[in-house]
Design a protein around this nucleic acid. Structure first.
Lengths: 242, 242
DNA sequence: AACAGACATTGATTTAAGTCAATGAAAAGG
DNA sequence: CCTTTTCATTGACTTAAATCAATGTCTGTT
């Protein structure tokens, strides 16, 4: 076995996300410490639950591949979609304070995540102060995004909401995508409608209209589409065009 | 002058917020260090700008008294209200990552704030690791609140939105209030309407309806009201009642 | 391959909220 | 103190999206 000061090769060194994930904030020589607090490459099948609303929580999750939705189940059986998460995103940041899951998370497709105990992260943080900076950076970003989204969803038309949504998804997928105009929607129409605060029928009509205007191209009924006229899509998103 | 290890009495020791503000995370003996990074008791008159969208930023602000709104100005002259902040709240957390103000902030009434350089806070953080924990705690709370609000505003009726808004304001004001049912609205109807994603006329009608149903009592036209039937208000908020 | 069930789309109608317009009430300013 | 301006309320009408209902299309199962 390697001694505690001998660098060892671990999962994180070989991960495609390493440069954007928290090991990036720890020197290569000390990366071995990471293995002590992170559980890597957990797999979840489509529809599998990552965690359940109300449960106690001690972990954040980093998505290595695939995607998840978080949602709140209502007494009347309906769901409120809180967010969609994809490669590189961190799930459960909002529960770190209370230590209880505020929503449930389920896989939208077969996915892989790494699991980090935030209690242990706190200990490691004292050892590597840059980790705290990273945490604050990530939180600040999440908050900025969330405010943006609030603005968009509370005040825009159905067309503008969907256009904004597609542009955001596209931007997030582009980080690792080949074709910059391709969009893959791993979530159902119902999920998107719910997330954007629209009826599923309204959403469907808007999809049809965006398609007919030549703005997007649908490659099949559900998940695969391409942005064909990005400029127009952006005008829809900003509300210049209707 | 006191030497660096001699506890000195400073503004923060006497502040009513001390137990909820970040000095709470530093031992009394070392509190003097706080004075090196915090500027206390800055005053802003009603309508005065705390900062302007697009400016570079190095500070977060803690409200000692009064209230502020943050907003984005649009090319067409309209405003998007991002948030309302009151005593004990921290303004500008979302800009820490980018270092640029994502919105403008202005005082809704005569107010007092303390200003903390987050660069210096980073240095202090290495000295007092608990500060980092506090930062993460605060961020996690802010994120949870923001997700809650998104849900409420994107999917609820006008009545439910206003009822939720009033309950949130009431809860936040209760921390230091005498009468637990009193609500003071320092922002204009236009600001509330904008924040909730409603037309000002719709908001006005809902105010009238809540008043007529005996749910709230308006003490004057604008700012002062009381919750008269909290249970009913909560039913409106949850959408059980319309 | 055929069936069932889930999911998506399209059409007809209703409704909640937005818009336009007028009035009322308070605050600001000379 | 009176005028002007700003902000809030109320009414009449319009519209975007929700709802209700039917149809179409994919997915998975045996």
């Amino acid at each position: 076995m390697s001694g505690p000061n001998t660098p060892i090769r671990n999962d994180c060194d070989e991960c495609a996300l390493a440069s954007r994930c928290f090991p990036a904030f720890i020197s290569v020589e000390k990366r071995f410490r990471v293995t002590q607090i992170i559980t890597t490459n957990l797999t979840y099948d489509k529809t599998a639950l990552l965690y359940r609303q109300g449960e106690k929580t001690k972990h954040i999750y980093i998505i290595k591949s695939g995607s998840f939705k978080t949602y709140i189940s209502n007494p009347n059986g309906t769901e409120y979609i809180n967010g969609f998460y994809m490669t590189g995103d961190i799930i459960n940041m909002e529960s770190v304070d209370q230590g209880i899951h505020l929503n449930s998370a389920s896989a939208l497709e077969n996915s892989m995540v790494c699991k980090v105990s935030f209690l242990r992260l706190t200990i490691l943080k004292d050892e590597f102060p840059t980790l705290a900076n990273m945490a604050i950076k990530v939180y600040s970003q999440a908050l900025a995004l969330s405010q943006d989204l609030l603005k968009c969803i509370s005040k825009q038309s159905a067309t503008s909401r969907l256009a904004t949504f597609l542009l955001i998804i596209n931007r997030r997928q582009n980080i690792q995508n080949q074709d910059p105009d391709k969009i893959y929607l791993s979530m159902s129409r119902q999920d998107i409608a719910n997330y954007l605060g629209l009826a599923i029928e309204t959403l469907s009509r808007v999809f049809t209209r965006l398609n007919e205007s030549g703005c997007i191209i649908k490659h099949n009924r559900h998940s695969d589409l391409s942005i064909h006229d990005r400029d127009l899509l952006q005008r829809y998103a900003s509300g210049i065009e209707n």
